[in-house]
């Protein structure tokens, strides 16, 4: 069995990046103007995620019958669609994959802190995520895609939430891990509010030495800031186009 050098002594990662480099990040908003109120497409390296947002509306389509709307804010419902072709091993995921359910709960919590709740009492917001290809950074891609789609849907947010995963190779933190690295190393995913140092999201499913965590997070925050810039750029481009059309 051949194993790869995940981080060579020369300081290069398995795909040729250095430790503090993000993968190629591309995003678009308003990709599906007719299908939803807000939509976005996010590509981080080879991970590709599509997000559609419907709402705010009076009845959520995804909501279970009898769910009461909340007078203090919107009811978020999150649906993740992870087709078999998206990952390397074509395996069918069960309907209620525990991991995806957990992720959707985490994302809901994160965005309930980001949406300006008081504007959306007694409404429902449906978020649909579709994974087109996955090469690491699942949660981070979701988070970034939702942020953009919510912005596209015109839902008022306090700020961007940009997310990225950071892993640890021996003593070296690695920014924005791909699937190969994620398989082998411990990592933490963090989501940062705008340009601040506030974390709106952290998820670590592996063991990590506690004394390294701070270093990972500080590297992650810088990565998130950079992602936020890129997303902001794209939002402004889309905004510009909208203006032109009107």
């Amino acid at each position: 069995m051949s194993r790869l050098e995940l981080y060579s002594p020369e300081g290069l990662r398995v795909d040729g990046r250095r430790w503090n480099e993000l993968r190629r990040f591309e995003c678009q908003i308003n990709t599906h103007p007719n299908a939803a109120d807000g939509s976005s497409y996010v590509q981080q390296g080879n991970s590709k995620v599509l997000c559609l947002v419907k709402g705010p509306m009076e009845h959520g389509a995804n909501l279970a019958a009898g769910t009461k709307l909340d007078p203090n804010g919107p009811v978020l419902s999150l649906n993740i669609n992870y087709p078999p072709f998206a990952s390397n091993e074509r395996k069918k995921r069960p309907k209620n994959d525990r991991r995806l359910q957990e992720i959707s709960i985490i994302l809901k919590r994160c965005f309930m802190k980001t949406i300006v709740l008081k504007n959306y009492s007694r409404t429902a917001i449906d978020i649909n995520l579709t994974v087109l290809a996955m090469d690491g950074g699942l949660l981070a891609c979701f988070c970034n895609a939702i942020t953009l789609a919510l912005i596209d849907a015109g839902i008022s947010l306090y700020d961007y939430v940009s997310a990225v995963s950071v892993g640890l190779y021996d003593q070296t933190p690695l920014l924005d891990m791909n699937a190969l690295e994620e398989n082998d190393l411990s990592f933490v995913t963090i989501g940062v509010v705008g340009d601040s140092d506030k974390l709106n999201l952290t998820l670590c499913e592996d063991k990590l030495p506690l004394d390294k965590l701070e270093r990972l997070i500080s590297l992650g925050i810088e990565g998130c800031h950079r992602l936020k810039e890129l997303m902001d750029l794209q939002v402004r481009v889309a905004g510009g186009q909208l203006q032109e059309r009107q």
Partner: peptide, 28 residues
């Protein structure tokens, strides 16, 4: 951001053990 440079995506098809084809895509 290395996107300033050129990113090549390699696609490698590897036959997996049980006979099925496994598509491995790696960024480079």
């Amino acid at each position: 951001r290395p996107t300033d440079g050129l990113a090549v995506t390699q696609k490698v098809f590897v036959r997996s053990r049980n006979g099925g084809a496994l598509k491995i895509v790696r960024e480079h």
